[in-house]
Amino acid sequence: MIFKPHPLSTSQLPAPELEEDRKSCRKVGPCGIGKKAIYLNSFYVDRCYYIPFTAVRRVFKRVAMSKGGFSGKGMFASIPYLVVEYDDGQQKQCNFKYENQVDDLLKLLSAEQPQIRLLSETAEAKLEKQKAEKERELRSRPEITTQSQKEVAKLQRAIDYLDQKPQLSENLSRAAGRRRTYQCTSPSYRWVAMAITMLGFVAVAAGIYSFIVHNDFAVYFLLFGIAAVFTFAGFSVLPTARNNRKAIMSQDEQARKQMEDYVKGYPDFPVPARYAHPTVLKRMQRVIEQGRAEEKGQALEIVKEDLKALNSDVKVSQEEYDEVVAIKPMFLNAMYQ
């Protein structure tokens, strides 16, 4: 290997095993999952560290967010991280650009290394508390009518239908999220990115000039290092073949079209195709089971009102956060129509 990953834990893999494992690791965002180790990123370099699974205690998601988890524009303003706890409690925090990549990595890790805990100790304690509260809430629910029970059953059949092709719902959610994020991003950020990228090119030119005139070697490393930092930082924000208005809008339209074609095969699907996500239907089920609605139309309207009511003063659980992140962009893009 030209660039050998650096071990963070006290335990290490033998060089031949590390090389083979690193080559075969499955990349998820800036990190990766091998058969014997997890590969982690620094701020700028992907998969430059590793920790053998034998040293890993926990791997979990951490989200930095504004108060209550929302910005003033009705979107979650969040920065996702992957946290790996290893050895005697040390932690390595890895920044990700997209939260769904953290979720994908945890899902892959759960399948391949089921012995590793995927929640922090604090989250586990909160989860136990939430389970107890949910049990109390279930016991306090009123008895619903026979018609309401039929509506819940209809929604469950629709959920089962969507679960036959989960990728369609995931694509719908992700495309809507990217569209909303792009629309809420100030154009001035792209000008700043352009300026940062230009600084990177200037540093490259200065480094080449210093090399030609035989300046001190330290200058080369400094200038080329600055060039790399500025260039990579700028490119991450600048429009690209996949990160521009046309591509993002096209992906969203394609995801909705694919879902529309799929739900045509289900007579009287309970929600419009633009909202066809299992989480939407599950929230509708809860609304009916809580006695707040008796049929699917009313339930959908109440789900919309619940999402609208979430603002900067509302604090939510991790479960609620995950649900809202998945579906709220779809409603925002459609203006709750």
Rank of each mutant, 00 (worst) to 15 (best):
Y98W: 10
V271Y: 13
V83N: 04
V63N: 03
I79E: 07
P5I: 04
N311W: 02
A241P: 00
F60S: 00
L281M: 11
Q164K: 11
D163C: 06
E323G: 14
V303L: 03
V314Q: 13
K328Y: 08
W191L: 09
K35G: 15
I288N: 01
Y220N: 04
Y266G: 12
L106T: 04
F217D: 02
L127G: 06
D46P: 07
S78G: 03
R245K: 13
C94I: 07
K61P: 02
R245E: 15
A77H: 08
M284I: 08
W191T: 10
A227T: 04
K165Y: 01
E19V: 12
S140Q: 11
S11G: 02
I327E: 05
I144S: 08
F211H: 12
G89Q: 09
R286Q: 14
T181R: 13
L18R: 09
K4T: 14
R26D: 07
R117Q: 03
A241I: 14
N95L: 12
K328Q: 15
S9V: 01
S173W: 04
G32F: 05
F3P: 00
S186Q: 01
M1K: 06
D160K: 10
S66T: 12
S24A: 14
E17D: 14
F96H: 04
R256P: 02
Y262G: 04
F201Y: 05
H6S: 10
P187H: 02
V202M: 08
S188F: 14
E19F: 09
A203D: 07
S66P: 00
V83Q: 03
M198K: 05
M194K: 14
G225W: 01
Q298C: 02
E294P: 00
S9I: 00
P14M: 08
E20H: 08
E320S: 13
Y81Q: 08
A309S: 15
V213A: 03
G68K: 00
P239M: 11
A37H: 11
Q113F: 13
S140W: 00
L109T: 02
K67E: 12
S42T: 03
L13V: 10
L109S: 03
A175P: 09
Q337W: 05
V63D: 10
A227Q: 06
L82V: 10
K35C: 07
T145M: 07
D21C: 02
